[in-house]
Design a protein around this nucleic acid. Structure first.
Lengths: 198, 198
DNA sequence: CAATTAAGTGAGTAACTAATGACTAACTTA
DNA sequence: TAAGTTAGTCATTAGTTACTCACTTAATTG
């Protein structure tokens, strides 16, 4: 079966993400990718000039998926608190769909080797934090959230919540529903953040 | 310079942690370790039978350092809230002292290759969570912390805070004081958790 | 349908990696 | 001080990895 290069590229990127999850990002070899895709190792280099280029494509794919998910989340809710829930839910969904993501953040394949990607990922996290901070501030103005904490700090706490539950899920046997558990803890944190009168 | 095996072993473990931080855990080769230690590659195998044994020693070292730090923290404070601060401070201190730790949690060198170590690390995190949950519960009984949240859930939020700030620090240029920023956010979270009257 | 394009193959190669084995030299101790 | 122990070296090996190159074969197109 011969496929177009674009299709193959997407297939390779997906394979890398799957493999990264199973054997670790820094152990993904061109040979392993080739076997899983079902072509020879040399064929991989028809689509990507170097292994680093492969990782660039992976990073682009992940970054774009995140942005898309956030935008979709923001589009589906109006009330600030609901928008926070949608954002966190989207993030949890992305992690569940691409379990290699947390590891990717720490793989030096993407960090040591490629400083640009490190900066890009940091930017994405900053964007996520910015979304959360904006919604928290809106919630405070609407008197739905208590205003005796900085919106930016509350945003950090909310983002950390995702990271914390993701780490526990990743490290453990993934024996609980990441999405449900994350939203449950989010409710707890939002309860702590909610305005007294509300 | 000839050293005793125990001294060399400790030197090798320290070198691995330093190298893991700089080039990534899965890129630490016996050769690179040897150069940094200042002996030949073959000499490494005088002290550890296999590379996996080296990682076992590293994991043991880290796990022990954590336990020691927690115990010291608990010994230096009496009031529950202060004990929480001491625990979190100790954890932040350990991460700052051994920046490779967060990466280590995700390195498949320790996960895929060695299931025992994965379980051991999960156990350590569970212990940390247990310490926090116990202190939160005590704080609730003492009417210092609000009791409309489960102590276990509050403990997860507190532990996540550490992980969140550590990730931001690791991923960024490490351009802020991990310890100070962590404790600052902890104060915010503790403020959210504090009993209304207090 | 002939010509061109592009995906894929097979057989390499240079560099690296964990591990081994024979041997040497520095400490310890009887 | 002689004998034993043990950290260390040197040279080597089997296996892996990213990458190359000459060549083949399937699709597209003038």
């Amino acid at each position: 079966m011969r496929k177009t290069s674009d299709l193959r590229k997407a297939e390779i990127v997906a394979t890398i993400l799957g493999l990264a999850d199973r054997i670790g990002p820094d152990r993904v070899t061109t040979g392993a990718v080739a076997i899983e895709v079902g072509v020879t190792q040399a064929a991989i280099f028809r689509h990507f000039p170097t292994k680093a280029a492969m990782w660039n494509a992976v990073a682009d794919h992940v970054a774009e998926a995140l942005t898309t998910a956030w935008d979709a989340a923001l589009a589906q809710a109006d009330i600030p608190v609901e928008r926070v829930k949608a954002l966190i839910g989207a993030q949890l969904g992305q992690i569940a769909a691409t379990p290699a993501m947390p590891m990717l953040l720490f793989s030096r394949e993407l960090n040591v080797e490629n400083a640009d990607l490190r900066v890009a990922f940091r930017g994405r996290l900053a964007t996520f934090h910015g979304h959360l901070a904006r919604e928290v501030a809106a919630g405070q103005r609407a008197r739905a959230l208590r205003n005796d904490v900085e919106a930016a700090d509350a945003a950090v706490l909310l983002a950390s919540l995702v990271q914390g539950v993701a780490i526990r899920w990743s490290l453990g046997a993934r024996d609980f529903a990441l999405h449900a558990e994350g939203l449950r803890l989010l409710d707890v944190q939002l309860h702590l953040l909610s305005a007294k009168g509300a």
